[in-house]
């Protein structure tokens, strides 16, 4: 016995040092929905060092835990809204975790903003002026809000945009919501020439360059001027600026020269240049 006594004592100590698995805390005031900002959850449990966190599908929401004689009381750390929907309340102590499925909602009214998506963002009158519009309302915590003037959460419209070229905003205060109506292809290329005696050259102007709706051709549009004196064919390219494109070609003395302008597959009339 005497020999075995130290072993008995050691064994007792070993057994007494083993960790006891805690029991799952009992939720004293369960509710089908939790308003995070007004959270006051009571649990009956034993032990200290309990921690709590709300796990929703966007981010973990930190909670504060207050220990009392019978258990713990849980409340929100930050009085902020959350993305509503299903979540898991996680209580942990040491390496032991316990989960409680919950449904989150925001108790206080929040700021709602409108979303207006347009597709395509760039519209060209050469193809189509139709644009699809999808709207929905969303609060500051990215929860969908019911639309005021439409049933449900989303509304879709097909809009026929006016053919005037320019930039518009779907939402006034948001530059990122801008959409664009481009000028279409030129329907015709008016071309004119003026002889400048001082420099012995012709100033050739193509313009005003407009599409079928009267929109001025986009700045930078490449105009190719082809001119020939019957022997040599030349090609000079110039960019459109404010609906006009101008080049200067030297006069070839008494030789007649003809010139035309082209943008893509649109060709102007042929102009004869007589000095």
């Amino acid at each position: 016995m005497k020999k075995g006594l130290p072993h008995i004592i050691l064994l007792t100590l070993l057994v007494s040092c083993r960790e006891v698995t805690p029991e799952k805390p009992v939720w004293l005031n369960p509710a089908p929905e939790l308003a995070v900002t007004d959270l006051q959850l009571q649990f009956r449990c034993s032990g200290k060092n309990w921690k709590a966190v709300l796990l929703n599908f966007t981010q973990p929401v930190p909670l504060s835990v207050r220990h009392n004689d019978t258990g713990i009381t849980i409340s929100a750390v930050h009085k902020k809204g959350v993305t509503e929907g299903p979540a898991q309340l996680c209580l942990s102590t040491g390496d032991h975790y316990f989960f409680y499925p919950v449904h989150l909602r925001n108790s206080k009214p929040v700021l709602v903003s409108k979303k207006d998506y347009r597709s395509p963002k760039t519209v060209n009158p050469d193809s189509s002026l139709y644009q699809q519009k999808i709207i929905h309302d969303i609060d500051e915590y990215r929860n969908l809000a019911p639309l005021k003037n439409y049933p449900g959460y989303f509304a879709e419209e097909e809009i026929l945009l006016p053919p005037q070229a320019g930039t518009s905003r779907a939402i006034k205060a948001e530059p990122l919501s801008s959409f664009y109506v481009q000028p279409g292809s030129c329907t015709a290329i008016p071309i004119s020439a003026v002889y400048i005696a001082a420099t012995k050259s012709f100033s050739i102007t193509a313009g005003p360059l407009q599409d079928k709706y009267g929109n001025t051709a986009a700045n930078g549009t490449r105009v190719a001027f082809s001119f020939t004196d019957g022997q040599t064919s030349s090609r000079m390219e110039a960019a459109v600026w404010n609906g006009y494109s101008t080049i200067s070609i030297p006069s070839t003395g008494n030789t007649r020269c003809s010139i035309k302008a082209m943008i893509n597959q649109t060709v102007s009339k042929t102009l004869n240049l007589i000095p």
Partner: peptide, 27 residues
Amino acid sequence: IHGGTPGYSVQTGKDNGVLIDVKMYNE
């Protein structure tokens, strides 16, 4: 911007070849 105003004329050569006379102006 690919530059240059090329003017050209083409003369027939031998064996299906042509001779391209190019006069290029740098505007």
